[in-house]
Amino acid sequence: MRPEHEWFKPEKLTRYFFAIEALVLVPIVTAIGVLAYSGILFEMNPWVVYVGVGLVVTAFGFVTWWIPAFYRTAAYRLTDDELEYERGVFFQQKTTVPYNRITNVNASQGPLQRLVGAGAVGIHTAGFGGQTGAELTIGGVADFADIKDQILDKVRRRPPEATEGGDTPGVTPKRTTTETEAPELLVELRRIRELLEQGRGT
């Protein structure tokens, strides 16, 4: 259970991201080792080797720096009415999802997440125009199942928000007589009454 009105960090996020980085790095290092063992690497143009290795080292060095930097900016907060998510290394972003817009909450844990003891909670909302999409994902948390139940409990306490056009899903609005239509109905009734009186007179 996460405390309400307090920002909390995805404590397993860095470990999960580093696991993904290692998973990508292993086949690259293996390929370089095979090329070096077979002698093909030494037969290539040295500049090609230097540039290729330089790009790989630069890319993985940047990712290694970015992972903890992103973790320092990522935070979630559960309030009485909405879920908030802040993140961004270079550009700060904030996503706010009201509970009455949430249509589905699911918890998931893949093999790599299970390895690092992490999981994810997907928040889905009713989009405008009849479209449904994932608004945000709470990833890199250990108690993902408890967070899912906590959010669902808040969602069930609130009525669903009206969809585009102001109608509640599954409810057909009743047509009522407006003030502008009332005089027209009176005129029609008077005309019918006059016709009936004329018919009686003849």
Rank of each mutant, 00 (worst) to 15 (best):
Y99L: 02
V53I: 14
A69T: 07
I67G: 03
I67E: 04
T95W: 08
Y50G: 08
I67C: 01
T103G: 04
P98W: 02
I67D: 05
I67Y: 07
Y76D: 03
F62T: 13
V105I: 15
Y99E: 00
N104K: 14
N100E: 03
A107W: 01
F90E: 12
E84A: 07
W47C: 10
T79C: 10
L55R: 04
Y99D: 00
R87P: 00
R87I: 00
W66A: 14
V89L: 11
K94E: 08
G52E: 00
V63T: 09
T96G: 03
R87N: 06
D81H: 10
F62P: 06
L55D: 04
F60H: 15
V63A: 15
A75Y: 01
N45D: 14
N104F: 12
P98G: 08
V53G: 02
G54K: 05
V51A: 09
G88E: 08
A74E: 12
T96I: 12
E84L: 13
V51K: 11
T96M: 08
T58R: 06
D80Q: 08
L83V: 05
F62V: 11
T103I: 12
N100Q: 02
D80S: 12
T58C: 13
P68E: 07
V48I: 01
A59T: 14
N45M: 01
T73Y: 10
E84S: 06
V51M: 10
F60N: 06
V49C: 00
W47E: 12
T58Q: 09
V63H: 12
N100L: 03
V57N: 06
A59S: 11
I102S: 07
W66Q: 09
T64H: 10
N106Y: 06
R72D: 09
E82F: 02
V48T: 08
G52Y: 02
N106E: 15
E84G: 02
T58L: 15
A74L: 11
T64M: 05
N104G: 03
G52K: 00
F60C: 06
T58N: 05
D81L: 09
F70H: 13
Q93I: 01
A69G: 02
Y85G: 03
Y76A: 04
A107S: 15
N104I: 05
F91I: 12
A74H: 12
Q92Y: 07
Y76K: 05
Q93C: 01
L55N: 11
T96P: 00
G88H: 04
I102C: 07
P98T: 05
P46T: 15
V56M: 11
R101Q: 08
F90K: 12
F70Q: 13
P68S: 06
Q92E: 11
L55H: 01
Y71E: 02
